[in-house]
Structure formats: structure tokens, C-alpha cells
């Protein structure tokens, strides 16, 4: 037998699966059981109400937009932090974690103060004829803020592990800088990038605290799905809340599976 730091595969597996089950699977099962209290027609009726559909649409599209923005700017941030050395680099690196570390309500208030018509950014945008606070755009802004660290932190180790000789090899083979970036650097980073984007998207989908202040929560316009769940709970419509939540959960699972599949494919090449 091999000698590992932790004894007993059986014991380790038992502990970790019991823990995972308790922390992850049991709550999910409870949720499903709750929504199963409704009959199919009731469930379908609940999740296809126009207000619920509008909330889903906003949540998914805004999260997608936020993940998309961070796919680009998170990549840029990670690139700059890893590839260049400049005064204040460590400070900037630490700042990436701020959206992560702040209580979401705090970032919500901060963003609202910034984006409200009287605030810095809100005032500036207002002069350009764009409203941020209490619009879907504001929701996207909040989601972009809170999901940035996921892309950056997923990419940094992959970027550090990228061998600079690979880019040099591409150059000696006659590739232009752009070709070397597009054909060598990007594909090598793709698995990490995809996983970062997925995490950012998943986080944005579930975000609540930082969005509710800036969005204004107008039904059909700026109401996100997690808020709708809270609203239903406050009205003691537990089954309705569970139904809305179950759909979100299913969607999250499908997305996670898709992302894993994409990641596997890009890891093992297109063979």
C-alpha cells in the first residue's frame, strides 16, 4: 500500500461525501420536495407568470452581459497583473478581491450612491442621457462588479503557468504577435477562462444583496429572480418561491454541465 498523508481512502471518501450531502444535496432535495407539494399545473402556472418570466429574463440576460464584460476586462486585468511589473501591482492585485470580500449589502449601497442621478457616475451618465440607477443597465453594472474576481482569479494561475517559450517558439516559426496570441496563448488559457466565466455567471445569477438597491425592484422591469423568491416568501407563498427557485436551480445545473463539457473538450483538443 502507498503511504499518503491522510489515512484510509474509505474513511476520507465517507467523510467528504457525507459532508457534501449534508451541505449541498440535502438543501437541494428539500427545495425540490417543497415545490413538489404543488401539482404540475400549479407549478407551471407559477413559473410562467409574466412577472416571473420577466424576472428570469432579466436575471439571465444581465448575468450573461456581466460575465461577457468580465470575460474581456477580467482577462485584461489578469494579463496586466501577471505579465507586467509596475509600482502598485500588489495593491491592484489585492483590490481585485474587494467585490468578493465586501458584504453584498455594502457594495449595493456603494453602487447605488455612485450610480444614482446625484452620484458621480450617475450624474456623468445622466448628462449623456443614460440612466443607471433603477434600470436593467444598473443591474448589469452591479453584477459586473461582483463577478469580476472570478474571472481574474481563475486566469491568474493559468497565465503564470504559461511558458513564455511557447510564444517565442511561435514567433520563431514566423507567426505575427497577433497569431501567436490567438493560436497559442488564448487556446492554452481557454479552459481556465471558461471556468472563470462560468463561475462569474453562476455568481451573478444568484446575486441578491448588491442588486436590490440599485435596481429599484420594479416588477416586469428591474426585478431579478432571486428577489422574486424573497418577495414570494414574504407573502408566505413558500411553494411558489420553491417553484421559482427550482427552475433557477435546473438552469444552473444545465449551465454547469455545459461549461464542464466545453472545458473538457478544450482540454483534450478537438480530436
Amino acid at each position: 500500500m502507498s503511504h499518503r498523508a491522510l489515512p484510509g481512502f474509505g474513511l476520507c471518501l465517507g467523510c467528504s461525501s457525507a459532508y457534501l450531502g449534508l451541505v449541498v444535496l440535502v438543501p437541494l432535495a428539500a427545495l425540490l420536495a417543497k415545490s413538489a407539494g404543488m401539482d404540475w399545473a400549479g407549478f407551471w402556472g407559477t413559473v410562467t407568470q409574466p412577472r416571473v418570466l420577466a424576472a428570469y429574463r432579466l436575471s439571465f440576460l444581465a448575468s450573461l452581459a456581466a460575465a461577457g464584460v468580465n470575460a474581456v476586462f477580467g482577462f485584461l486585468t489578469a494579463w496586466v497583473l501577471v505579465r507586467y511589473d509596475f509600482p502598485g501591482r500588489r495593491l491592484l492585485d489585492a483590490a481585485v478581491d474587494i467585490p468578493f470580500a465586501l458584504p453584498t449589502a455594502v457594495s449595493g449601497i456603494a453602487l447605488t450612491a455612485l450610480c444614482a442621478p446625484g452620484g458621480w457616475l450617475g450624474g456623468l451618465a445622466g448628462r449623456l442621457g443614460v440612466r443607471l440607477a433603477f434600470t436593467p443597465l444598473g443591474v448589469v453594472a452591479a453584477l459586473t462588479f461582483i463577478s469580476l474576481p472570478f474571472v481574474v482569479r481563475a486566469l491568474q494561475p493559468a497565465l503564470r503557468g504559461l511558458d513564455p517559450e511557447q510564444e517565442e517558439a511561435a514567433l520563431t516559426l514566423g507567426a505575427t504577435r497577433w497569431q501567436s496570441f490567438a493560436r497559442v496563448v488564448l487556446p492554452a488559457l481557454l479552459p481556465a477562462h471558461l471556468s472563470g466565466i462560468t463561475l462569474a455567471f453562476a455568481r451573478a445569477l444568484g446575486e441578491y444583496g448588491s442588486v436590490v438597491f440599485i435596481s429599484g425592484n420594479m416588477p416586469m422591469r428591474t426585478e431579478i429572480a432571486p428577489l422574486l423568491i424573497a418577495v414570494k416568501l414574504e407573502q408566505f407563498d413558500v411553494a411558489g418561491a420553491a417553484a421559482v427557485a427550482a427552475v433557477m436551480m435546473a438552469a444552473a445545473f444545465v449551465l454547469l454541465a455545459a461549461a464542464n463539457f466545453l472545458q473538457l473538450r478544450s482540454l483534450h483538443g478537438r480530436a
Binding site: 511558458d163 517559450e165 511557447q166 517565442e168 517558439a169 511561435a170 516559426l173 514566423g174 507567426a175 505575427t176 497569431q179 493560436r183 497559442v184 487556446p187 492554452a188 481557454l190 478544450s266 483538443g269 480530436a271
Partner: peptide, 20 residues
Amino acid sequence: HYALFRHMTVFENVAFGLRV
């Protein structure tokens, strides 16, 4: 350390200089 392109097959590694 060879600096082969890890995400490409042997064939694509050799073809790289021709493809660019």
C-alpha cells in the same frame, strides 16, 4: 524544454509554421 504547443497534436505542432 521543447516549448511544444500543448493544446495541439503532434501534426498541428509541426504544421504551425506553415499555417501562420
